[in-house]
């Protein structure tokens, strides 16, 4: 295994930070992913768009190693991770924020925040996190699940920022949240992008995705059917409506 830093080439000519290819995935007996393939370059924000059940969440789960049965190739920083258990994938610098947020009820806010081990140097300090999400400081001794939905989402993102993960997988961070909170999450994502984070975002709401993403990967029935750069989104609205059925 080579030095991970060596495989990161300068921007522009860069090998992708994450390369997904021929990815197949199963939930028990049901075959959900049918040869997913897409790349994510360093510093990019890429959204996975698609209807309910298209396989967006499953794709993230397959990348982080939560899916029991998966096949194909997921190369992160030049290293094949398809055969690794999820804890080893995480240790390579990949952070995952699940759709259900995964805030622990038996831990207080501070414990939730400090739970994920630091996997790489360069993660956000606690002070920086509290600056970004002041509510988390105020409520640090509350039970994690006593927070509002928006605060829980902040907490789920914040705890990954501490770990030094370079690539963050965000599963529907805006789901079920009030518009003002959605805006705040949008600002957070843009801020993280400016700080050099690479983000893969699963979204149903392409209007929100449009405000944060560089590129959109459209998924249908477990396959990538289209890729649309953010600049071309307006021009492709009709096509996108057809894909998403909105």
């Amino acid at each position: 295994m080579g030095d991970p830093a060596a495989s990161v080439s300068p921007a522009g000519t860069a090998a992708p930070l994450l390369a997904v290819d021929r990815l197949e995935g199963w939930y028990g007996e049901s075959h959900v992913l049918h040869g997913m393939a897409f790349d994510v370059r360093e510093g990019e924000v890429v959204t996975l768009l698609g209807r309910n059940g298209a396989g967006k969440t499953t794709t993230l789960k397959a990348i982080v190693g939560m899916l029991e049965k998966r096949r194909g190739s997921v190369v992160f920083e030049g290293v094949e991770t398809i055969g690794l258990p999820s804890r080893k994938i995480a240790r390579r610098g990949l952070g995952y924020v699940p759709e259900e947020r995964g805030v622990f009820a038996s831990l207080n806010v501070y414990e939730n925040l400090m739970l994920p081990p630091v996997v790489r140097p360069g993660g956000m300090s606690l002070e920086a996190i509290y600056q970004l999400f002041p509510n988390l400081k105020e409520r640090s001794t509350s039970q994690g699940t006593k927070l509002s939905g928006g605060e829980q989402q902040m907490l789920a993102i914040a705890r990954i920022l501490r770990t030094g993960a370079k690539l963050i997988l965000l599963d529907e961070p805006t789901e079920g949240l009030a518009p003002v909170i959605v805006q705040q999450i949008g600002e957070t994502i843009r801020r993280l992008k400016a700080d050099g984070y690479t983000i893969v975002l699963v979204e149903q709401n392409f209007r929100f995705a449009q405000t944060v993403a560089d590129r959109h990967v459209v998924i249908e029935l477990g396959r990538v059917v289209d890729e649309i750069p953010n600049e071309a989104l307006e021009a492709n609205l009709e096509k996108l409506h057809a894909y998403l059925g909105v």
Binding site: M66, R87, A90, G102, F104, P116, P117
Partner: peptide, 24 residues
């Protein structure tokens, strides 16, 4: 303690704790 926090979290959701890099 931190070890206890791992234990409590893994009691709730072992798969997620594993995606943080903890050796469940």
């Amino acid at each position: 303690t931190k070890l206890g926090a791992y234990l409590r979290a893994a009691t709730e959701n072992p798969a997620l704790v594993q995606t943080f890099g903890v050796n469940v």
